[in-house]
Structures are given as C-alpha cells and as structure tokens.
C-alpha cells in the first residue's frame, strides 16, 4: 500500500515570490517524515505540492518533479483527482463537513469513488474509525452531526475520513496544533500506529513532537531544504549550523 515519494528540484512560486526552492527529497514508505522549520519557511507549501493542492491557487506555479512511486504526479498521465485519493491530507484545523453526520463524513469519499457500497461500506466505516481510534467513542452516535464531537475527536474523524479512500501517503499539516495536550497525545499515538501501513509526512513547528513521532526529519529554512536525515541524528548531531540554531531554540 504505502508508497515512496520523491521530489527533484521542486520549486513553488507565488507570483514572484519563491516559497519552496529546488528541494530534492526522498520520503520513504512506512515511516513518518517530519518537516520542521520557522514560520514562513515553506513547509506547508511543500506539503501541499505533494498532492497538487496548489492547482487551486491561480498565482501558484510548481516546477520540478514529484514522483509517487514511479509515477510523475505533475505529468500528463496523472489526474489530480486520482492523485488525491492516493495522497490524502489532514489539515491544521479539524474540518469535518458540518452538514454531514459522522458516518457520512467517512463514507463521502468512498461513495464518490465507487469503492464500496451496502454492507461493505458499513465495514469500511467501522474499520477506519477503529484505525483512527475513534470507534469506541462514536459507535453509538454515527448519525449525529460531526460538529457534536470535541476538537480532538473531530481531527481523528478527519484522519478516518482520509483513510477511507485507502491512500498510499498521508500528508498532515500541523494536525495537532489546534488541540489540547490530551488530544495531541492521542493523535501522536495514532500517527505511530498508522506508519505500519502508510507513508506519513507531517508538518510541525513543535520540535518535541517531531522528535517523538518521526523517523526522519527535514529542516526547512527560507524555502530551502537545509538538512534531512534520521530524526535521532538530526536532533543530536545536526550538521548545519542553522539547524542547530533552530533546534536549540536560538531562532524561529
């Protein structure tokens, strides 16, 4: 299931401003890759380039290459709609669909894609909600509005919703930044479980979080990928002085 993602000379421009500059990065499957860096360093922009969310920003230009496995995602053969079913995304703030019930939030995408119906769909709902560690909390109220959940539950619902299309890669944009410590803990546990099956890329500006959940860490600064390596190495033995300055809290 899980796939490797590779970027080559990836550059993202908004008008004249370069937000991501010539980034070469290889994201290994079945692991968690954290992207850290100060605000405005291009980490979210980079993440959104991985599932072509910049398609909807008229001023955004993406150059270079991004591969999912061995397929070029900015190539002619790749339909962005299909791409986004393979590369799912969880956003900074929980954004369940308020007009839909908990169940409908989960089944929305599988129904569109024709992945399952009837009893299969019910199984899918239970499976992904279990995967997202939410099943026990919501199994009795699947038809309640998604907005009746707490913030942390909503975010786990959003993760379940993303998992329901069986993606190969899961992108997470500061998924716990709007949550309290207990809910953050649950999301982090969940990320740890999910990496058995998925390629996970998580943007965070919480270095402790990066240290706790990730196998690899990339440090971005001014749109450049400054340093990338195994998390333990990067935090204990940074090779670049800016990385060191950042992780020791001297700037950012």
């Amino acid at each position: 299931m899980a796939e490797r993602m590779t970027t080559r000379q990836l550059t993202v421009r908004f008008g004249n401003a370069e937000a991501v500059r010539r980034v070469d990065m290889e994201i290994p499957p079945r692991s968690v890759t954290a992207i850290i860096g100060p605000s405005g360093c291009g980490k979210t922009t980079f993440l959104r380039a991985l599932n072509r969310m910049h398609d909807f920003t008229p001023v955004a230009r993406v150059e270079g290459s991004v591969r999912l496995g061995d397929r070029e995602i900015y190539g002619n053969g790749m339909n962005p709609v299909e791409l986004r079913t393979r590369v799912g995304m969880v956003f900074q703030r929980p954004n369940p669909f308020p007009t839909m019930s908990i169940r409908q939030n989960v089944t929305y995408a599988p129904k569109r894609h024709g992945l399952a119906r009837g009893p299969e769909l019910e199984e899918l709902v239970e499976r992904v909600l279990r995967q997202a560690a939410l099943w026990d909390e919501v199994k009795d109220r699947l038809d309640h509005s998604a907005t009746s959940l707490s913030g942390g539950q909503q975010q786990r619902l959003c993760i379940a919703r993303a998992l329901a299309v069986e993606p190969q890669v899961l992108l997470m944009d500061e998924p716990a930044s709007a949550l309290d410590p207990t809910a953050t803990q649950k999301i982090e546990d969940l990320i740890y479980d999910l990496k058995q099956e998925y390629t996970i890329v998580i943007v965070t500006h919480n270095m402790q979080q990066a240290g706790r959940v990730s196998d690899h860490t990339a440090f971005f600064y001014m749109g450049h990928l400054i340093e990338y390596g195994a998390t333990d190495d990067l935090f204990t033995n940074p090779r670049n002085e800016r990385t060191e300055a950042y992780i020791t809290g001297r700037f950012g």
């Binding site: 709609v81 079913t85 799912g88 956003f91 669909f97 299309v165």
Partner: peptide, 29 residues
C-alpha cells in the same frame, strides 16, 4: 463558505464540481 471545507473535499479526491455540490452548496444551503 470556509476555504478549509472546500479543501477538505478536494483533498479527498472530489472533482471541483463534487466539492461545490456536496460541500459548498450544502454549507450555504
């Protein structure tokens, strides 16, 4: 309609029209 609603639908692999129909119009009903 909040941008993150549209983006949530699009990130799940909706076409633009599906995002409009099921999320934007539903939200603005």
């Amino acid at each position: 309609v909040p941008l993150d609603q549209k983006e949530a639908a699009l990130a799940l692999g909706s076409t633009r029209w599906e995002a409009v129909q099921h999320v934007v119009l539903a939200y603005g009903r």
